[in-house]
Design a protein around this nucleic acid. Structure first.
Length: 738
RNA sequence: AGCGGGGUGGGGUAGCCAGGAUAUCCCGUCGGGCUCAUAACCCGGAGAUCGGUCGUUCAAAUCGACCCCCCGCUACCA
């Protein structure tokens, strides 16, 4: 029996966890942990909510509540969601605890004593308007390297350059927009540069790490390590355990990783043996695994090992199987970007095993993988329900009905060997794949065994044998039950709920976990009473009907009237217009070469009212007008002449009030469609149409929305009153609108 | 245009790092079987010059060079 420590990245407690967390840092470690527990290993799996840090304070400021309230709220929500997913931590705690403070203080003082920390005066941005020092993400400016104007205080997300204070140009405070000044402040630094050599030695024998993890780490080490500040001018966080350091806290990146250790200590205290954690952290033979998303790699392969080395006597990470991203509609799932499918609401609709199955089957182990509701439905219904679920059910229900218990095996050794061989081969592979964190492959093997079961069941046809040769029938059912039993054990790590249910239906008094993997080596007991079977999985249906045009609601379109038109002082093709959309806004548009100014004045147009303002050549555009474009031709989309300014163009739906980024807008498919009949339109091909396309509209060219580029359905753009939005002239069907 | 990620039968994917014999799996499609099972299961067929060209090699989806195209972020696209 080996000891294993499994650590998983700590989710920020400023929002509910989403599918990206499950795919990246929740499900893989749980599968791994369940596997080790089945094998009889002693697993310590810890994590918790990362409650400090700027994201929490940002959210708190937005809502006007204390950071603590936010931190606690989402800790509760996320703990519940994690339980709901059947993810079994030894302890899922949080960072805002007395225990965590103690452990962090201990580590801090140890490092200080050993000379790994030092004090230094630095320059920090201070906003005199907001009366505070600004964290890096509150500072925006121009990157001197690539010219990106939205670089953050500490680094440029575009080109990856990192900045020392003062290196960023054109700085401004993102809270109030004023120009912050640099002010002296004193901070502690971690002497990371001193660990360069030891870290290179540490990484040397890690050839078993995933390629992406090795590359990333190597690049960091080759670039050379620089010392990093580990304190901040803030009040929400872990205090600095020294006199005179009020108003400063320990920086979250330094403090959060120590959570792995503090959570282990807390777990030990709660278990009644306060020293129990030492068996896991001080015995060098115990392997430590860290599961996280790729954005977290350097913290776990460089910084955390450095802290551990500095502290001394504690185990370093053995493996860091970082995953890539799960994407949705091609974008990274991320709460900060609003692309998110959160777990609490998913759990209300779906069985956790179904979510776990899908994520495990599509896990972004080596490259980003795409989540889609369609695939979710297909994989669930055709693989999980139809292959595994159906096999469980046909074997159990047939046997139950005809025998009521496990029938006796009266066949030859050869007959048995065929089935046992298949099981042994499968379990050998699952064992190998799971022990090396190759979860997708392991799951595939399990599903292949289920398919083997289906084939076998078909071939031996017990429904025929039961009428002619009951002994023989019992024999083959006995073997099928053997497969069912094995499937329950092998699938347990992935789908614990259904595995336990199947186990119960097989009539076992003891749990799977009782003997774990060793159950594979014992035959099902002849005569064991079966429970009345029920299907173990249900099909899912994703409601496409209502959702179909859901994306359209992202757009807040309004009728606008052009009040004034002027040349852009600083651009050849741009015009600056004042537009009335119920309120006055300024638009910058590239219409100069397509429309004469006088023709635009007073014209009615359609405006995207909730687009994030953007500066175009120095002048801010507070929206965007819709126009069809094809082969260099640009034609405005125009509402009916009597539509008042500000009238919503909502096609009978409820638009969202939130701002839309330009890239999100670009993902929406708006095309020119010619109304072909009462319920269809020609966009280069015929699509089914929803919206007002009565007889009088046939032949007209209007704007339509498509849920996706290849969709067979479309929604006609129209005002609240039901009048379609027409193209200002003739243009080919299917021309894009932007 | 800069940076990053990709192009594999109708759609979605595996394989690529460590090159080899009929290129995987799911859906769809065509035909058949079975009727125990959640219209599920099983068998068989059709359908791919693995984006293109050149090269390395006995052997290339896999390695190298160049090109084309797509997506994300960025930008005088709004």
């Amino acid at each position: 029996m080996a000891k294993v420590v499994i650590c998983t990245a700590w989710p920020y407690s400023n929002s509910p966890i989403h599918l990206g967390h499950v795919a990246g840092s929740l499900l893989p470690p749980d599968i791994f942990a369940k596997y080790h527990r089945l094998k009889g290993d002693d697993v310590l799996m810890v994590s918790g909510s990362d409650q400090h840090g700027t994201p929490v304070t940002v959210k708190a400021e937005k809502e006007g509540v204390s950071p603590e309230e936010i931190a606690e709220r989402y800790h509760a929500i996320n703990s519940e969601a994690i339980r709901g997913l059947r993810i079994d931590y030894s302890l899922f705690t949080k960072t805002h605890t007395e225990n965590h403070f103690e452990v962090v203080h201990d580590v801090f003082l140890h490092l200080l004593e050993k000379g790994h920390l030092y004090k230094k005066e630095t320059l920090q941005y201070y906003c005199s308007h907001c009366m505070r020092f600004l964290p890096d993400r509150y500072v925006e400016g121009t990157c001197k390297n690539c010219g990106n104007e939205k670089a953050r205080g500490d680094q440029c997300d575009t080109c990856g350059t990192t900045f020392a204070p003062g290196e960023l140009e054109n700085v401004r405070c993102t809270l109030c927009g004023s120009v912050p000044e640099l002010k002296e402040t004193e901070h502690y630094f971690l002497r990371l540069s001193a660990f360069q050599g030891p870290l290179i030695d540490y990484v040397r024998d890690k050839s078993y790490w995933k390629a992406n993890v090795q590359t990333f780490t190597k690049n960091w080490l080759e670039a050379g390590l620089t010392d990093r500040a580990i304190t901040r001018d803030m009040t929400w966080g872990v205090s600095v355990p020294l006199p005179g350091w009020d108003g400063k806290v320990i920086y979250v990146w330094f403090e959060a990783v120590i959570g792995y250790l503090s959570a282990s200590v807390e777990w030990a205290k709660r278990s009644g043996n306060p020293d129990a954690w030492k068996d896991f952290w001080m015995d060098p033979t115990v392997k430590h695994y860290y599961f996280l998303g790729k954005d977290n790699i350097p913290f776990h392969t460089i910084i955390w090992p450095a802290i551990l080395m500095g502290y001394g006597g504690l185990n370093l990470p053995y493996d860091v199987p970082a995953n890539e991203y799960l994407t949705f509609k091609g974008e990274k799932l991320s709460k900060s970007r609003g692309v998110s499918i959160d777990i609490p609401s998913m759990l209300q609709k779906f069985d956790p095993d179904i979510i776990r199955y899908y994520i495990a089957a599509e896990m972004p182990e080596n490259r980003d993988s795409e989540f889609s509701w369609e695939e979710f439905e297909i994989k669930t219904n055709n693989e999980l329900v139809a292959t595994l679920g159906n096999y469980y059910h046909r074997v159990l229900s047939f046997t139950y009905r005809n025998y009521g218990c496990v029938p006796e095996f009266k066949g030859s050794a050869d007959e048995r060997r065929e089935v046992i061989d298949a099981i042994e081969t499968a379990s050998g592979q699952v064992d190998e794949y799971l022990s090396t964190c190759q979860f997708k492959k392991a799951l595939k093997v399990v599903m292949d065994l289920a398919q083997f079961g289906n084939r076998y069941f078909d071939r031996v046809a017990p429904w025929a044998l039961v009428k002619t040769d009951k002994d023989k029938c019992g024999t083959v059912l006995n073997l099928n039950l053997e497969i069912v039993k094995s499937l329950a054990i092998l699938s347990y790590s992935f789908m614990p709920r259904s595995a336990e249910d199947a186990w119960e239906l097989l009539g076992y008094d003891e749990t799977i976990m009782k003997n774990g993997w060793q159950w594979l080596g014992t035959y099902v007991k002849v005569g064991q009473q079966l429970q009345e079977p029920r299907p173990l999985f249900s099909k899912v249906e994703v409601d496409r009907g209502d959702r179909m045009f859901g994306e359209f609601e992202k757009l807040d379109l309004r009728v606008g009237v052009i009040d004034a038109v002027n040349d852009h002082p600083n651009a050849d093709k741009l015009l600056v217009m004042d537009v009335d959309i119920g309120k006055k806004i300024k638009l910058v548009a590239g219409l100069k070469t397509h429309y004469p100014k006088e023709k635009l004045l007073g014209k009615k147009i359609v405006v995207v009212a909730n687009l994030q303002p953007a500066k175009l050549r120095g002048i801010e555009s507070q929206g965007m007008l819709l126009a069809a474009e094809s082969k260099g031709k640009v034609l405005l989309m125009t509402p009916a002449a009597d539509a008042p300014a500000g009238e919503p163009v909502n096609s009978g739906m409820t638009p969202s009030a939130r701002m839309l980024s330009f890239s999100d807008f670009q993902k929406l498919v708006l095309l020119v469609g010619q109304i072909a009949s009462q319920d269809s339109a020609d966009v280069g091909r015929i699509v089914k149409c929803k919206g007002p396309c009565g007889m009088t509209s046939i032949g007209k060219k209007v704007g339509v929305f498509l849920p996706s580029a290849d969709s067979a359905d479309a929604l006609v753009l129209c005002t609240k009153g039901g009048v379609p939005i027409a193209v200002d002239g003739d243009i080919e069907n299917g021309a894009p609108i932007r």
